[in-house]
Simulated assay, not measured.
Amino acid sequence: MAGYIKKEPVRLGLVATLSGTHAELGVQIRNGAQLAVEKINETGGIAVRPVELVICDDLGTREGALAADEKLITAGVAAIIGHSTSAQTLTGLTITGPAHIIMLGPSISSPIFTGKSEYFFRVHPSFLDGMQGFAQHIYNRQLTKIAILYDMNNAAYTETYRTAFTDKYQQLGGTIAGEAAFSSTVKPDFNPLLVKLHEKNADALLIIAADIDTAMIAQHARLMGWKIPLFAAAWAQTETLIYHGGQAVEGMEIEQAYTLTSQDPDYLDFKQRYQDRFGRFPSFGAAYGYEATMVLAAALHKTGGKTKGLRQALLEIRDFKGLTNNFSFNQYGDVVRPIYLNVIRNGKFTYLDTLTQGQ
Rank of each mutant, 00 (worst) to 15 (best):
G3D: 11
Y4P: 01
V10I: 15
G13V: 09
L14T: 11
V15N: 06
T17W: 00
G20N: 07
A23M: 04
A23T: 07
L25S: 06
G26H: 09
I29F: 00
N31G: 05
E42S: 15
T43M: 01
R49E: 05
P50A: 08
V51W: 00
V51F: 00
C56Y: 03
G60H: 02
T61P: 06
R62F: 04
E63W: 05
L66T: 14
A68H: 08
I73S: 02
A75N: 09
A79L: 05
G82L: 06
S84A: 11
T85A: 04
T89Y: 01
G92T: 13
G92H: 05
I95H: 01
T96Q: 03
L104P: 04
S107L: 02
S110H: 05
I112S: 09
S117G: 08
E118I: 14
E118M: 13
E118P: 15
Y119A: 02
Y119M: 12
P125Q: 12
F127W: 05
Q132I: 12
R141T: 02
I146F: 02
Y150I: 03
D151K: 04
A156G: 08
E159H: 12
Y161W: 15
R162N: 12
F165R: 03
F165D: 03
F165Q: 04
T166F: 01
D167A: 13
K168Y: 06
Q170V: 12
Q171W: 12
G178R: 08
A180M: 10
F182I: 08
S183T: 15
S183I: 11
V186L: 11
V186A: 11
D189P: 08
F190Q: 09
L193K: 12
L194Q: 10
V195R: 14
H198V: 01
H198G: 15
E199L: 08
K200F: 00
N201T: 14
I212F: 01
M216L: 07
I217Q: 07
G225Q: 01
G225W: 03
G225C: 02
W226V: 10
W226H: 03
A234F: 00
A236P: 13
T238N: 05
T240Y: 00
H244Q: 14
G245Y: 08
G245R: 12
Q247F: 02
M252K: 06
I254N: 06
I254Q: 08
I254H: 07
Q256L: 15
Q256S: 13
T259K: 10
S262P: 05
S262T: 11
Y267H: 09
D269W: 05
K271R: 15
R273P: 04
R273K: 14
D276W: 01
R280M: 08
F281H: 05
S283D: 11
A286Y: 09
Y290T: 11
Y290K: 13
Y290P: 12
T293V: 07
L296E: 11
G305Y: 04
G305M: 10
K308F: 02
K308E: 14
L310P: 11
Q312A: 13
Q312K: 14
E316I: 04
R318V: 14
D319G: 09
Q331A: 15
Y332L: 07
G333M: 05
G333P: 14
D334M: 06
V335G: 03
V336Q: 15
R337L: 10
I339N: 12
G347W: 03
K348D: 00
F349K: 04
F349W: 09
T350C: 11
T350M: 06
T350R: 08
L352V: 05
L355P: 14
